[in-house]
């Protein structure tokens, strides 16, 4: 187990290194400097700005400085806000994004499990059909469409919740709902498929033969066995939340990382794009590693067996 973990951590760093390298050179291919919007500057002023960003050095040196900086926790300076470090920018915007992501994950996963379980237990009945349609809608309706609809109908027309901004819990409700749709759908589909399998397994047959009630079978045997493989959903769900947060935060003006990312893309703020890219990748890599560790701990079938492969 230990050897396996070390190997995984090594690959985590290798992945991040490759991501940083590729990102760096991709960004170097692109036109645009921090000067693009300030045409009136004198030559010496331009030179000093370029020097501030280290852009006067040869590309290979910039690369080593950048990679070296990452180890010290520095991701360079933002083009858009010339006095802000990218790492500070990300750090200051992490709070809302994490809160939103966490809330959406909670809502999505809990409702998803309920919906998926109903679908599996009442397989091929109208309840299953309704649950399936709801979960497929969660996949078919893109988060940005859902966000706009929620904002307009629940926020503006009915005035139930604040339309945009970030100053209190009530402001988080609409973006949470918009963001939760995708994890809800993924979870529901996963649980339904898995539980249908579990419910047709021999140990469920034995549980029936014990005389357990339907509820007892689902609660004590089926649910537990279906929830364990759900750990593998952590990665995909996190990725879906990152995707969703970009548009949802934008639509609801939430001062989060996703909103910043889109802004940076639109104004060609390369250092920030690179920084957020590396941040997102690191987050996902960590979660995937965590998935493996948790899986090893909670699944008695693979516990003690030494390799999580």
């Amino acid at each position: 187990m230990r050897k396996y973990l070390l190997k995984r951590i090594f690959y985590l760093f290798l992945t991040l290194f490759i991501v940083a390298t590729v990102t760096f050179f991709l960004m170097k291919l692109m036109p645009g400097t921090p000067l693009q919007n300030e045409a009136k500057l004198t030559a010496s002023e331009k030179a000093s700005i370029l020097a501030q960003y280290g852009l006067d050095k040869p590309v290979w040196l910039q690369y080593f400085i950048y990679i070296g900086g990452i180890f010290k926790g520095s991701l360079g300076l933002s083009f858009q806000f010339s006095d802000q470090a990218v790492s500070y920018l990300i750090g200051s915007r992490m709070g809302p994004s994490m809160q939103l992501g966490g809330q959406a994950l909670l809502v999505g996963v809990v409702l998803g499990i309920i919906l998926g379980a109903i679908g599996a237990i009442r397989k091929d009945t109208w309840a299953d059909r309704v649950a399936t349609i709801l979960s497929i809608l969660g996949i078919a309706v893109p988060s940005f469409v859902l966000a706009i609809l929620l904002q307009y109908y629940l926020g503006l027309k009915l005035g139930l919740f604040p339309v945009a901004g970030w100053s209190g819990f009530s402001y988080t409700i609409l973006p949470t709902l918009a963001l939760a749709a995708s994890p809800l759908a993924e979870t529901a589909r996963f649980i339904r498929t898995d539980m249908v399998d579990v419910l047709s397994s021999d140990y469920i047959e034995l549980a029936k033969a014990k005389g357990l009630s339907k509820f007892g079978i689902v609660y004590h045997h089926a649910l537990r066995n279906s929830l364990i493989p759900m750990v593998t959903l952590i990665g995909p769900l996190a990725a879906a939340l990152m995707t969703g947060s970009m548009v949802v935060e934008n639509i609801f003006s939430v001062p989060g990382i996703g909103e910043q990312f889109v802004k940076s893309i639109l104004v060609n703020d390369y250092p920030t794009i690179m920084g957020v890219t590396i941040f997102y990748s690191a987050l996902l890599c960590l979660l995937l590693l965590l998935t493996d560790i948790i899986y090893g701990i909670i699944d008695p079938r693979i516990r003690l067996s030494g390799n999580g492969d």
Binding site: S201, D202, Y203, E205, L206, A207, K208, A209, K210, G211, L212, S213, H220, H221, R224, N225, I228, D299, P300, R301
Partner: peptide, 25 residues
């Protein structure tokens, strides 16, 4: 009513012991 009979009055053993126990309990 069957739930009260199953496991109490009439019990059953299945073919494959490798799959008939709940792996997580």
């Amino acid at each position: 009513d069957m739930q009260h009979i199953r496991g109490k009055d009439i019990a059953m053993i299945f073919q494959d012991p490798m799959t008939s126990l709940d792996p997580t309990m």
